[in-house]
Structure formats: C-alpha cells, structure tokens
Design a protein around this nucleic acid. Structure first.
Lengths: 335, 335
DNA sequence: ATCTTCTTTGACAACGATATCAATAGGGTG
DNA sequence: CACCCTATTGATATCGTTGTCAAAGAAGAT
C-alpha cells in the first residue's frame, strides 16, 4: 500500500540501508547517491513508517506536556508555544494531565513514557519543583525540560523568568505611586514563582524603608476564588490598604470583585495590580496593571532545547531566563 | 531488557501466539491456558511494546484533538474531558492546533494521521462544520467524532447540545423580566452554535410578539474584543436596549466593560446575559446570567464513542445530544 | 466406528524500519 | 607495485508484535 524504503531503494537502484542512511542524514554517503535517493523519495512520496522506526530505534517523535494547573489560560499558552515549536520538526505533542499529589504519579509517568517511547517531557509548575519526581525521571533516563523551576540545575534543561526582579519592579512602581499601605496575596505554595514574587515584593518594601503589614498579607493559590476570599478578609480589617499586589491576575480579579461588592471602586478607593497579563487582566474594568510574561515563548523554548538535544545539536540552544515586562493599565493610581 | 511476549510464553509454557491471543482478548483460548498466561504476565510485569503492536496492527492507541479555537477555557475543558475519557483505556491524547482557513489543512491532517497511525480524531468547532474536510477524512477512512456540528449526520459520530432550545429559554427568561428592547450579539459565523443561538433568540421574540431591532443586532466572533466593539456601537445608537443577549460569556464581558466605561451600571442600566458559563461569567461583577453547557462531558463522550467503536462495542455508546441549563446570576434584572 | 465440525494451539512469515559487519573501491604511502 | 586506510555500499539479522494457516484434539453426527 504505502511506499516503503524498499520501493525507494529499487527506484534509486541502491540498497535499503543506503536509503536509510540518506533519510537519517548519516555521514558517508556520496553526494551523487544522496541526490539520487532524495529524487526517488520525492518522486514516490516516501514517508518513513514511524512505527517501524520507533520499534527499531526506540524513538517516537513525540513530546509530552505534563501539567497540573488550574489556570486554563496559562495551559493554553504553554501548549500553544510547544505546539508551534514542534511544527515542522516532525515531533508531535501528547498531553498528560497529572495530579501532583498522587503517590502513583512518578510510576504512572515513567510507565507512560516507556510504553509510548515518549522522547521527552515538558514539565510545568508545580511539577517543576518536585525534586523527587525529577530525580526519578533522571534515574529512568527520561529526558525533560522544566518550565520555571525553583532550583535551576545547570545540568538540566529549563526555562525561567525573572519573577523576583519583575515583582521588585512592580512593587517599586506601586510605591512610586505614593502607596505606603500595600497588601499582598501570595500564590500557590507549591509554585516556586510564588516565593520569588513575594520575595521581590518584600525586597522592594525594604529598599524603600517600608514594613510589610501581616494583616494584609494573605495566602492564595492562584485561583480567582482564593483572591476573592483574601479580598473579603482584608476588607474586614480595621484599616484597609490603599493598594494590593496579587501574585497573579486571576486573584487580582477576585479581589476586584470583592471590592466592588463592598462598594469600593478601583482604582479610586483601592489600587490593584496583578501578574501574568492573562486575558482577564483586560477583560475586567478597570484593566489591570500587571507583569507580562512571555509564556508562549518560554514554552516554545523548552520544547526547542529538548528537540535540539535529541537531534544532537547540544550547543545550539540552551536553558534561558526570559524577561517579563511591566504593563501599565488603569488599576494602579497615584495616591 | 524489557519483558517480551517471548519471555511470557516461556514462563507459561505456551506459544507466543497464545500469549498474544490472551492479551488481545481473542476468542477461543481455553480458560485454563488464559489464566496461566495472565499469571505469567502479571508475574513478569509484561507490557506489550506499542511500537511493535503499532507496526503490525496499524494502530497507535492515540487519539488526536483538532482545534482552532480562540477560547482558551473551552479548549481546556474539551481537552480535560477527552483526557479523562482516555484514562485507563490505554489510549492517549495528542493535540493538533489547526488553522481552519489553511488550504493545506486537509492534507496536513491526513498526512499526520497516516504518519502516526492516529486511531481517531475528535473535532471541535469551527472544524466540525467543514463538510469538505470531513468528507476527505472519510474518503481516507479516518475515524472521527465531531463536537457540536450543524449537520448531525446519523452515520457519523457526534455530540451536540441543545443550543437552540437553551437560547429560546434564555430569551424567554429575559422577556419574562419585562424587557422588550433586547440586543443580540452573534457568535463566530463559522460556528454552527452561532446560528442556533440566534435562531432560538428570534423564535422566542416572535413567540412573545416582539420584533428584533436590527440596530441592536451585531456580528461578533466569540472574542472579548468583538463583544466590546459591539457594545461601543450599540451604546452610540439613539436608543439603547434595556437588555443584551451575547452569544457567549466573553462577548458579554466585553459588553459589560464597554458599558462600565460609558458609566452605565449592570444590571441597573442594562441587563446582560451570556452563554457557556465559562469562568469569566463569575469573575466579573455582577456575575453573568448564562447557559451552562456540559462541555467536559460532551468532549468525554465524543472520545468514549470513538474508543468504543475501535474496541468493537458499536452499540454500547452512541452519538448524543446534551442538555444545557440556565444559570441565574445578577446580570439580569426585572425591569 | 467413522466422518465432520469446532475448538484450541503453535510454527513461521510479515510488518518496515535500523544495526552490524563485511565487502568493495579508491587514494595515499613507502 | 604492494600495502594500508578510509569512504562508500550492501546483505542480512533484528526489533516485538500480529496474521496466516495448518495441525491436533475434542465433540457431535450418522
């Protein structure tokens, strides 16, 4: 039915192995032979059978995306970035929803990778920081790239962003708007970004000689609801801050809703900033001042360095830190 | 290295073929033999090599999700539904971002399916309604299930929802709140749901003896921005409707933002309803009265009927229409 | 008792690539 | 000219399953 290497080898009057050499770009094939084979490949429309390749060479040309993330917009961006990086490389993307709390996680994933001969994994927070899990993958010789890990192991592949610095800058911006009473909503405790953002906040306060007020610092988990709840709590306190820095946009939106339900107006009664520049930042009114992260590019880069490694281009692409940028909108006001 | 059929056959003192029969649940294996084999399989921890299976039997145990959808929340729900349906079936999910306008779409997808021996496709709007595309898939003997197609071909696998009816009901609800001047924002012209929702709206108006006002009917494309723009236009007209029915929540949010920027308050100055019950419906204030669709279940069902077909359980599960339900929140007010 | 038929089983080929290793052909060297 | 070395090529084994087909045994029919 389909065109096989055998057909090509006959058409080009060379051996099967020589065709294989050509399509795998192996060394030591005479230029003339190579061209002859490529012509036949093209003429017959030959495409190698992935199953046969996979069986013999133990590769699948599949990457898998591992995630356990409640944030749909983040997921969609990551996925899209990886997908685009795979395009035209012959690799495809299979997805794997995980439960980071499951005790079977490690075994399930290893089994999955072995069963399907998945070539490599792209791992997102909070899985990026599960050292045990990552060590087990390594022990099983599974290739992976992590997005936004806390510990940036120079031996492993990763992409990160300058969360600390961005948070420091955003906090400074708030302070420059003459705010002194600033609340902070922490992100999901298992995401390393949460700590970085909080630390950046604290550092900026300190730098400007301000003290954090524990009453206005709440633990969230990156969800809208956790932001809403934090807002409700803060607005019950005796004194209300003039600005709140939420560790992501969803939580900021939650706070805005709780504020509006209390009859407060943003930014007149309360300034508010988010983080991530997810779609919701622009879909509420007033729109959020926030930090834009190049999520798609980060994810694409993660896939690229993995693929580069498979293709032996070890030095072509490397782990990298991406820069975020401040996006000024209406939710932050000069006091 | 890994345990193969051969190892199992030795351990169980049967032929390789018999082991194969057992793991594929073929008929005509004596109960005794079967148990013996299963015991060995378990004892040795045997797992069939997917590449070899794939090579020989031309199956991959992979489904692919095709989408070209700007709505990240919808995508995430669909994906999650399919993923859960695949769980414990041995099937996995690979994703394929498409451009429904691309002329190469059909060829690319067919090539992709052939290359990777993808067992079946789950197809989402607006691809669900591209008849040419679907016919080509059929001609290539590619299995697929469509989500929310306009034409429900009884020979094909599909899942749908009662958009027309739901829209009719929601419109009636608006009218029951004594609104007579009602605007409507249409959805993406290529999505069949758009037409169904619009027709349901018109039918309800007619039933209550109301005439649609062309000035308040705008074409959107399901995006927040298109809703925002439609809002801006409507609020420039000489007379403003007392209620607007947007064909999805994102557009409703866009309208709300444009209203708030004009200084109007929802629902006091304007009632607003959406469709889909996506997260944003609750993340804005006031929260949207909307229609909740069981997107995850629909997607899961699509995957299930595909897998059931592969496994020969033709009559176990079938195409199905899902029911949406009205979700009452604060954005719709009695006039 | 003999002939069918059906159930159960296994030997061996086949799927379509890559890996191993040997063979051949030039090119350079002393 | 004999020798070695390297670049190029091909014959054949191999990956781990499933498919084909024939054989053996059990059960049923006459």
């Amino acid at each position: 039915m389909a065109v096989t290497i055998k057909d090509v080898s006959k058409d080009a009057s060379v051996s099967i192995k020589t065709v294989s050499r050509v399509i795998n770009n192996e060394a030591n094939v005479a230029e003339l032979t190579k061209n002859k084979v490529l012509a036949s490949v093209k003429k017959l429309g030959f495409r190698p059978n992935k199953s046969a390749q996979s069986l013999r060479s133990k590769k699948s040309y599949m990457l898998a995306l591992l995630y356990d993330n409640p944030n749909k917009s983040y997921l969609a961006d990551v996925q899209s970035g990886i997908f685009n990086a795979c395009k035209n490389t012959g690799y495809n993307l299979v997805i794997q929803e995980c439960n980071y709390k499951s005790s079977k996680l490690t075994n399930d994933i290893i089994q999955f990778v072995k069963d399907f001969k998945i070539d490599g994994l792209v791992i997102t927070p909070p899985l990026s920081d599960m050292q045990d899990f990552l060590s087990n993958l390594e022990a099983s010789k599974i290739e992976y790239a992590v997005i936004a890990p806390r510990i940036m192991n120079p031996d492993s592949l990763y992409v990160s962003s300058n969360d600390y610095e961005a948070s420091y800058n955003l906090t400074s911006e708030i302070i420059n708007h003459r705010h002194r009473d600033i609340g902070f909503i922490k992100g999901h405790p298992k995401h390393s970004a949460s700590l970085l953002r909080f630390n950046g906040f604290l550092a900026a306060l300190k730098k400007h000689g301000l003290e954090p007020n524990e009453q206005w610092i709440k633990q969230g988990n990156f969800s809208f609801e956790s932001g809403f709840d934090a807002g409700v709590e803060i607005f019950e306190s005796s004194k209300i801050p003039t600005a709140i820095f939420a560790s992501n946009d969803s939580m900021a939106a939650g706070i805005m809703k709780s504020a509006q339900m209390k009859g407060m107006e943003v930014p007149n009664d309360l300034s508010l900033t988010g983080f991530d520049d997810s779609p919701i930042a622009q879909q509420i009114w007033p729109a959020l001042t926030t930090i834009k992260q190049p999520v798609q590019q980060m994810a694409a880069h993660a896939a690229k360095i993995l693929i580069a490694k498979f293709d032996g281009l070890v030095d072509k692409t490397k782990s990298k830190e991406f820069k975020s940028e401040l996006v000024v909108r209406e939710s932050l006001k000069l006091l």
